[in-house]
């Protein structure tokens, strides 16, 4: 997919990514949108094939929140890591996990089988920390052999830290109970988007991935977040009429 970047513009791009994230943090934002922005930035900055964020839910299980691409097959690669894979290991151990060659060895059999179908050959995951707790992980996949430097991993950790700040900053979180609720709210946003994708896919007679494109296009055109559009679609405030999403 993408070429590994090793130009002098790396620092400039990192600075740009951080500036963009901070601008989002200073605005009224949906955490899921910030997470999506960070996964896209991470993938681009590191010349990676994909990046994603997983968070733990109230029942103590890891759930997929956002990926750099809404392709269902990619989202499901993250979903597979509810039980095994670099993201799961990173979350359980609370430490950075690097997998320079995920295709050899039998570390994560079901995960590797699926990751291979999307062409991923190397991976890394960094923990998403809130105070003393590890609440999830930021996970990066490459379609190229491992050339990741310590500087790259520092950059990924910095982006994960921004995501963690975003999680608490969205509303003033006083205690970890409230943090658990913030995690829950973010994950419900993901579920709402999946419900809306299914509804639009049925009404527009398109597949699930194209349905996301329709939701996203409406969000961009109306200047709202994809989550807000998804809620309105499920609530039938926005419906599919005459070949497009329109206010009901």
């Amino acid at each position: 997919m993408t070429e590994i970047k090793r130009s002098g513009s790396y620092d400039a791009e990192f600075a740009h990514v951080m500036a963009e994230a901070v601008r989002t943090l200073a605005s009224d934002f949906e955490f899921l949108d910030l997470a999506h922005q960070l996964t896209v930035s991470t993938a681009s900055l590191l010349g990676a094939g994909a990046a994603g964020v997983m968070l733990e839910d109230a029942t103590g299980r890891l759930q997929v929140l956002s990926a750099s691409d809404e392709d269902t097959r990619l989202l499901e690669i993250f979903e597979l890591q509810r039980e095994e894979g670099p993201c799961y290991e990173c979350w359980r151990s609370g430490t950075v996990v690097t997998a320079p060659d995920i295709l050899t060895g039998d570390r994560w059999p079901s995960f590797v089988k699926e990751a291979r179908t999307l062409g991923f050959v190397s991976a890394a995951a960094v923990p998403l920390r809130l105070r003393a707790r590890v609440v999830g992980a930021l996970n990066v996949f490459w379609t190229t052999p491992w050339t990741v430097s310590a500087q790259d991993m520092d950059a990924v950790q910095a982006l994960a830290d921004v995501a963690a700040v975003g999680l608490v900053q969205q509303r003033l979180a006083r205690e970890s109970g409230v943090v658990a609720e913030q995690l829950g709210n973010a994950l419900h946003s993901r579920v709402t988007i999946e419900q809306a994708k299914g509804l639009v896919a049925t009404k527009a007679h398109v597949d699930i991935d194209d349905a996301f494109g329709i939701l996203e296009a409406y969000a961009v055109a109306s200047g709202s977040s994809v989550v807000a559009v998804a809620q309105d679609v499920v609530d039938r405030i926005i419906t599919w009429q005459d070949g497009a999403l329109r206010p009901a």
Partner: peptide, 10 residues
């Protein structure tokens, strides 16, 4: 979750 949305539409 996707299937739930599809049923809601159907």
């Amino acid at each position: 979750h996707q299937a739930t949305g599809m049923i809601s539409g159907m």
